[in-house]
């Protein structure tokens, strides 16, 4: 494998690599390319499949109408779409303040045993299966309240989002240059104002990205909602009542023995993906519009 030694000067004519070498190069390079392409494949397949199966049943009614009883054609998932938005918002209302707060604390002050414990706990929490989180929310909220509720679903989703937000916030806050902090402190800013007005704004892009990832994951969760928010075939915005959600609807409709429902399940899945994509796009664009960024 060692490069050929240049011998006599008369052999200085350019010679490419050997045939053998070229074959290896082509082989390994194609293998790498194939692996890279495979990464794209699942998403491409999902999107293709969803568009093919979900698009035919997608119409305005799907967004505006309530589910129809079995046998009646048409109807939509208006309650599930709104329900998913509410449940994710509830989860975010719980997880974002706690997660960002904990992340900033870990990064700015987190030394010692308690901090390592928090980090370790967050990592373990990230690995807890979502159905187990659902059981926890069931025990924490559903049992004391005596019924399934949107609130319980929000708590379950919040717990799921928490570890991602904590650890990512810690990482991005740590990336804020020391010189920003020095500049603020030298101007006579107390530590808390330095963090609030300089460090967190400088890290905001990363914090939003982390939050979007967590929201996107939570929006698609079915298992933790099954025995917390439960699902609801009727219009309900009450947080102490069971609430419909897209993933649960998709789950129910996909298992049902009615062709009509199966079709709507595909459309529901397509809408869910669109919702998540839209959410992340909107958040990113808003962030870019913030003053002082160019």
């Amino acid at each position: 494998m060692s490069p050929a030694q240049p011998s006599a000067p008369q052999r200085l004519q350019p010679r490419g690599p050997s045939w053998n070498r070229r074959a290896w190069n082509a082989g390994v390079l194609s293998a790498c390319w194939l692996a890279a392409a495979t990464v794209v494949l699942p998403l491409a397949l999902i999107v293709w499949h969803l568009l093919a199966k979900g698009l035919p049943a997608m119409n305005l009614a799907f967004f505006l109408h309530m589910p129809k009883p079995v046998g009646e054609p048409g109807g939509g998932m208006a309650n599930a779409i709104v329900g998913t938005l509410i449940l994710v918002a509830l989860g975010a209302a719980i997880a974002v303040p706690i997660g960002v707060g904990a992340g900033v604390w870990l990064s700015e002050y987190g030394r010692g045993r308690f901090a390592s414990m928090v980090r370790y706990t967050a990592d373990v929490l990230a690995g807890v299966p979502s159905i187990v989180v659902g059981v926890v929310a069931y025990g924490l909220v559903v049992v004391p309240m005596g019924r399934f509720s949107a609130l319980a679903g929000g708590v379950a989703l919040g717990i799921l989002m928490l570890p991602t937000i904590v650890r990512s916030t810690e990482e991005v806050v740590r990336l804020v240059p020391r010189s920003y902090r020095e500049a603020a402190l030298a101007l006579g800013a107390p530590r808390w104002r330095t963090i609030q007005q300089v460090v967190i704004p400088a890290a905001s892009a990363g914090i939003v990205t982390a939050t979007v990832l967590a929201l996107a994951r939570a929006a698609g969760e079915t298992a933790p909602l099954l025995f917390t928010a439960l699902g609801n075939r009727f219009w309900s915005l009450q947080l102490d009542q069971p609430m419909a959600s897209l993933p649960v609807f998709i789950f129910d409709y996909a298992r049902a023995p009615y062709e009509d429902w199966n079709r709507q399940a595909w459309t529901g899945a397509l809408v869910l993906i669109m919702l998540v994509t839209l959410l992340s796009a909107v958040l990113r664009i808003t962030l870019r519009r913030l003053p002082g960024r160019s």
Binding site: S179, Y180, P201, A202, P291, G292
Partner: peptide, 13 residues
């Protein structure tokens, strides 16, 4: 007041 070796304006306007 303090001015540092490397210019360190905040990422603000």
């Amino acid at each position: 007041g303090m001015v540092f070796q490397r210019p360190n304006p905040f990422p603000k306007s």
